[in-house]
Design a protein around this nucleic acid. Sequence first.
DNA 1: CTCAATTAAATCGCACACAATCCATTTGCA
DNA 2: TGCAAATGGATTGTGTGCGATTTAATTGAG
Lengths: 149, 149
Amino acid sequence: MTDTPSDTDNAVPDVSVMLCFSLYSAAHAFTQLYRPLLDKLGLTYPQYLVMVTLWKRDGQNVKELGRTLFLDSSTLTPLLKRLDAGGLITRTRNPKDEREVIIRLTEKGHALKTHAADVMRCIEEAVGMDAEAIQAIKASVDTIRDKIK
Amino acid sequence: MTDTPSDTDNAVPDVSVMLCFSLYSAAHAFTQLYRPLLDKLGLTYPQYLVMVTLWKRDGQNVKELGRTLFLDSSTLTPLLKRLDAGGLITRTRNPKDEREVIIRLTEKGHALKTHAADVMRCIEEAVGMDAEAIQAIKASVDTIRDKIK
DNA sequence: CTCAATTAAATCGCACACAATCCATTTGCA
DNA sequence: TGCAAATGGATTGTGTGCGATTTAATTGAG
């Protein structure tokens, strides 16, 4: 029996060497970074992602939003209800196909886009890397995500 | 008014160009990849991270686990209670400092380590990249996480 | 034309995350 | 020594995520 300090087992990988943990903890760190900024807009981070998606293209249904964000209706429906309750969006059935629910920005929801520009600037500043370096990392991460999806 | 297809606003960034979204979606993709493998062990992904940490070094308190995993007691306490209920760990106050709760693997918790090796092999195979490429990406992601922490 | 298969949302149950707060123990300084 | 500050966990409340199931609308094969 070798007596190592604090019972360390060197045959077992630490979480710190696992790529999945890097992504897990980095994603959480970003959520934390966004939180104080988004608090001012009354949004959570996933709600912000939905708003960004709608600012880009208004009038999408739940399925389309889900394809973009990799989320399904069991996550989106309650989230969208909260945005609705906050007066940022409306949810109406598509008359052409009553199965679909079309999400549309309200005036208030549209107006919030102005403040979002500040948020993005703050994030860029916090990351503090040039656009090329960021895009290179992003491309690598996307490659892995698409491989395991 | 330019009439673009589907009301697309090109002045707004899509989530697909945001690094934070890449990390967010890649982290979720990993959780999905792990799920069927961990289901066989009766673990969730965060529970697995705790077990990996304990397999590496047994007998840590909640604070230490939290520092490693970037989680606090409000997340860890309920999670550890579930591992306790599942017979994988024990939770006992430190007699030297009654504020601390020491987490120790049970026989059953220790035994699970054997199966974990299979899990890791499956994950590596699914990612399908050489160790060097993975470590390069991991290093970049860690750099960003540490910058924004 | 009809009814079974498919599709889109919603619902339910469980397990994270995390801010805010509370409680018990320990520490440290006046 | 005594007591306020600090520390480690636990608790509460809100908001995701997601598997499994349900409901309603549409589609398509016979």
